[in-house]
């Protein structure tokens, strides 16, 4: 009986009800497979002369001594269309990939990518890794301003080869997030949002409404000193790009 109740209260719909009513809310689906690779939704930008660099550790080698593995980068457009999958072999302890428009078939835009560590040979031991590594952004293709990964967004199950989103939502916009940063009017500020959930995310920024479908991302310019985000999604936080004359900065909010 107890296990049946547990099953019912952990159904997708039930979690949304719990989150809506704020009764034992659940922000993230904790039942990640024992054999899985989880990734943040990392930003790529090739718009406005940006080039992106992704730096990542060989997590399987460092912590599990697995020598035969590769990393798959799944690139999506801002509308969640799969652009390409890049497989990277011969991994070192630390690795990097430059994401230019050439890598993405000439696309000058922005979107997200997911990084999965894939074992080349099946293992019986429990191995569940999480890529929260680092993306850098450059205007001159030489010097990159870096920001770390933050949220568990999409998980790849080694058993089933399925990918699932982990972040949960509610039916109404009942999650408030006031950014602990003062945005100066003398600078240009952009906030980059990605939808980390499997459901649509409805949100407003200081009262202005937006919507992101599953996997979508959006770059939004802001002119306010203070930013309050109201959404129906847990862990819905942007990455900020701040520009001042010829310099720019990127950071998590």
């Amino acid at each position: 009986m107890k296990s049946l109740i547990r099953k019912i209260i952990n159904l997708d719909f039930s979690i949304q009800v719990r989150n809506t009513l704020n009764i034992i809310p659940k922000g993230i689906q904790k039942k990640v497979s024992n054999q899985s690779s989880t990734s943040d939704a990392f930003i790529w930008r090739t718009d406005n002369n940006f080039t992106t660099k992704f730096k990542f550790s060989d997590i399987l080698k460092l912590y599990f001594k697995i020598k035969k593995s590769h990393v798959e980068l799944h690139f999506y457009s801002k509308f969640n269309n799969l652009i390409t999958i890049k497989k990277i072999y011969d991994l070192d302890f630390s690795n990097e990939v430059v994401i230019s428009k050439n890598l993405l078939g000439g696309i000058e835009d922005y979107g997200v990518f997911y990084a999965y560590h894939i074992m080349d040979e099946k293992k019986s031991q429990n191995i569940s890794v999480n890529n929260k590594c680092y993306t850098g952004f450059s205007k001159d293709k030489e010097f990159y301003s870096f920001v770390h990964g933050n949220t568990l967004v999409r998980t790849f199950d080694y058993y089933t080869n399925n990918q699932n989103e982990l972040v949960q939502t509610s039916f109404i916009k009942n999650k408030n997030y006031l950014i602990q940063k003062f945005f100066y009017s003398s600078e240009k500020n952009e906030l980059f949002f990605t939808n980390p959930a499997s459901k649509s995310v409805k949100f407003d920024i200081n009262g202005k409404n937006f919507k992101l479908k599953k996997g979508h991302s959006k770059l939004i310019s802001i002119n306010d000193n203070f930013v309050k985000i109201r959404s129906n999604c847990f862990y819905f936080r942007p990455i900020a790009f701040t520009y001042n004359e010829k310099y720019f900065d990127v950071y998590h909010c």
């Binding site: 024992n34 460092l62 912590y63 191995i127 569940s128």
Partner: peptide, 20 residues
């Protein structure tokens, strides 16, 4: 480089693993 700077901290190693 040329007046442009990057500053970021690294995540602790435990953040790379979800095993119990």
């Amino acid at each position: 480089k040329n007046g442009q700077i990057s500053m970021e901290h690294t995540n602790p190693p435990t953040s790379n693993i979800l095993n119990s």
